[in-house]
Design a protein around this nucleic acid. Structure first.
Lengths: 331, 331
DNA sequence: ATTGGATGAGAGAGCGCTCTCTCAAGAGAT
DNA sequence: ATCTCTTGAGAGAGCGCTCTCTCATCCAAT
């Protein structure tokens, strides 16, 4: 009752194992009638190649690790971002007939696990999703001589090609929009400063304010709704006269909207709000959120292509994808 | 420059390959000093076992397929649900030293792919996330003689153990809450009726209304915000005097809140709203949403334990986890 | 001193596949 | 008719590991 082997197929088709293998692997040097006989045998026996045996000899596994290097709690908390990236990357990889092995690297223990696994040659390549500056994983993986690409620019300069969106440029566009609509006291709720996206979006904010010599007012959150609400209350306390806030992601912007509502401020009349990410929920806030859209789906797909290109020996240059200001009612 | 093999380790430690294998696999029949010598060799060479070779002989792969059988667009759209389930299951499996192979079965083509892959013996077991009644995959997989567990009760009665939450009971509790707070015209926005969760939650609603002889008013959505908004407008048109609505999930409830706001109805004064799922966003709506919490994380973890139990030959009984009414301001 | 277990370690088969090497057969050129 | 060249198919090694079988060694019991 075990699964049929290539040997069995060959026997049934009356050919050698080598010939059966040729047919399975689509080589053209097989005469049509023999080819048909083998295919019939495969069909009749329900033969499926044993991948362990195959990858033992080919040294390929046709699978790719998708490593998510974040504290587990944050990963999927509520930010649709990760999920979309995973879905997109995963579908793109399936298209290329690669298996996706999902790995969470949430702490030192799992980091070690991941490294061991990758070092063990279980996968042909690695897609790394890591947004933390202090993350040792990008450096560790780049030492492993396995093709690695990263979603998001690695904080430490390390020789890994990556795909990222233009956080600085996006933030600049958002803040400029506020300046141009006449706002004078523009605060920001920045993201965590140990994350590249958090840093870059703050940089964008600062760039614009510097040029227009407005004063910067900064509170820092951690990309969760709750932290956005807290930061907004703090900003209102610091400077009750603020008339706009650029929030480093939509989730925090949603929290900020709640605090503004509780403080009796009308949006956008009293305070304009601009978010970042354009998550689905941004359309359903009260009022709907003006925000910066970046193409997560395309970005993940681009990352996959980058990795597949690496296999082909193509040069791997980082890609920066543009963001787009989506104007709704909040600013 | 290839990876060291067990042979190399054995040679360096001055023992046979068999003994080295014993040490690697933690067998106790090895004398301590020999054991140490082997471990030292492993360390010095940076030896990592080749999993292809290992699973070729052991017939185990130590990996589990996590199959998501949904149209791709819906999967991660914005519902945090899938993502949480994946994260939880994935972490639980890593704990048990199993690899997670993520597979999207979004159409007929990928269904075939998944079946082939599973049939190919690439994985030791399957965790299936499928919420669609018409899905042929549960039946197909159960034929494959591979241990399979399902997240959510399979629509077709098929011999697969599953973990689900008490959708009927939860809906009953939600609607009862509305009845008990004096609401008389209680509508519902049901989920898609080709999904078990959609059906069961509607059943719960009907059960309660039947007992309290109130009239049922039903609109059907597809679990997205947008469909919730549309359904709510429709309900208001059908019966302008409705004073409560039980919505089959929070995402649709958010859409419904938006429509109610646009129609000038106050929540909960004019219309009470109860959702289902208790997603994070439910806390941040205006007003915060009364809803039914079900423990996605625990549910996914339970599913993993169910599967691991199957490997040990334990009996696999379906599990139904209870839901909890979370009362906030919307009802 | 002889026997009889334990105990620890090695030899070697074999998991299912790919791929190189070899060779047979037929086609075309001389 | 002979030789070369192409084409198609088989033989067999070997990928890295596990695991059974076998055997050597040591110690206690006779």
């Amino acid at each position: 009752m075990r699964r049929p082997t290539l040997e069995a197929v060959a026997a049934r088709a009356g050919v050698s194992r080598a010939t059966a293998s040729r047919v399975v692997n689509g080589q053209t040097t097989v005469a049509p009638h023999i080819r048909d006989a083998v295919l019939r045998a495969i069909d009749e026996l329900g033969y499926v190649p044993n991948s362990a045996a195959r990858s033992l000899v080919t040294q390929r596994t046709d699978s790719i690790a998708l490593v998510i290097s974040e504290p587990g709690t944050r990963v999927f908390s509520d930010d649709p971002w990760f999920a979309m990236a995973i879905r997109s990357a995963s579908m793109e990889l399936e298209e290329a007939n690669k298996q996706v092995v999902l790995m969470m690297a949430s702490n030192a223990k799992s980091h070690a696990r991941v490294e061991r696994y990758i070092a063990g040659g279980h996968v042909d390549g690695v897609m790394l999703i890591s947004m933390h500056g202090a993350d040792p994983l990008p450096a560790a993986l780049s030492r492993l001589r396995v093709p690695v690409v990263s979603y998001g620019r690695p904080a430490v300069p390390v020789d890994i090609p990556y795909v990222d969106n233009d956080n600085v440029g996006g933030a600049e566009a958002g803040v400029k929009h506020l300046v141009e609509s006449g706002r004078r006291r523009i605060a920001t709720i920045a993201g965590p400063q140990d994350m590249i996206a958090g840093q870059d979006r703050l940089t964008g904010y600062r760039n614009v304010l510097r040029d227009s010599d407005l004063r910067s007012i900064v509170a820092v959150g951690d990309f969760t709704r709750e932290s956005g609400a807290v930061a907004m209350r703090q900003l209102l306390g610091d400077d009750p006269s603020l008339d706009a806030v650029f929030v480093a992601n939509d989730l925090m912007a949603i929290g900020a909207l709640q605090s503004l509502r509780q403080a009796g401020r009308r949006v956008p009349d009293d305070v304009a709000v601009v978010g970042f990410d354009d998550i689905e929920a941004a359309k359903y806030t009260e009022p709907p959120l003006t925000t910066l859209r970046h193409p997560v789906i395309e970005q993940a797909a681009a990352m996959v292509r980058l990795l597949l290109g690496l296999f082909e020996g193509e040069p791997a240059d980082p890609m920066i994808l543009p963001t787009e200001l989506v104007i709704r009612e909040s600013a």
